[in-house]
Deep mutational scan, measured.
Amino acid sequence: IINNLKLIREKKKISQSELAALLEVSRQTINGIEKNKYNPSLQLALKIAYYLNTPLEDIFQW
Rank of each mutant, 00 (worst) to 15 (best):
K37V: 14
E10Y: 04
K12H: 08
G32A: 15
E34K: 02
A21L: 12
I33T: 02
S17R: 10
N31Y: 10
Y50L: 11
L19R: 00
D58E: 14
I2H: 13
N53G: 12
L56D: 00
K6A: 11
E57M: 09
N4Y: 09
T54Q: 05
P55H: 05
K47V: 04
S41M: 05
I59V: 06
I59T: 01
S17C: 11
N39K: 14
E57N: 11
R9A: 02
L23V: 15
K12A: 14
T54I: 07
K35I: 11
L7H: 14
N31D: 15
N4M: 06
L23T: 11
N39C: 15
K13A: 10
V25S: 03
W62A: 08
L23G: 03
A49W: 02
N31W: 08
I1P: 10
I1F: 15
E34D: 03
L44D: 04
I30C: 03
W62P: 09
L5F: 01
Y51R: 05
L56E: 02
S17A: 14
N53W: 04
A21E: 13
E34P: 01
L52Q: 00
K37A: 10
I33Y: 06
E10R: 09
Q16R: 07
L42W: 10
A20S: 08
K6H: 09
R9W: 04
T29Y: 15
N3E: 02
K11E: 12
L52S: 02
L7K: 14
W62N: 07
L42N: 05
N31P: 01
Y50H: 13
K11Q: 14
N36D: 09
L52M: 08
P40N: 01
R9T: 03
K47S: 06
R9H: 01
K37I: 13
L22E: 07
E18M: 09
P40G: 04
S41D: 10
E10F: 06
E34L: 04
I14L: 12
L52D: 00
L22Y: 15
E18A: 12
I1L: 14
S26H: 08
L7N: 14
I1N: 10
N4H: 12
V25L: 06
I14T: 05
Y51C: 09
L7M: 13
L5A: 03
Y50C: 11
K6I: 05
N39P: 14
K37H: 14
I14A: 03
D58Q: 11
T54C: 08
K12E: 07
I14P: 00
L19E: 00
W62E: 08
T54S: 08
N3L: 03
L23D: 00
D58V: 11
S41C: 06
K11Y: 09
I8V: 12
L52W: 01
W62D: 08
Y51E: 05
L19C: 04
E10H: 08
D58Y: 09
L44V: 06
R9M: 07
L44W: 03
S15E: 05
L52F: 07
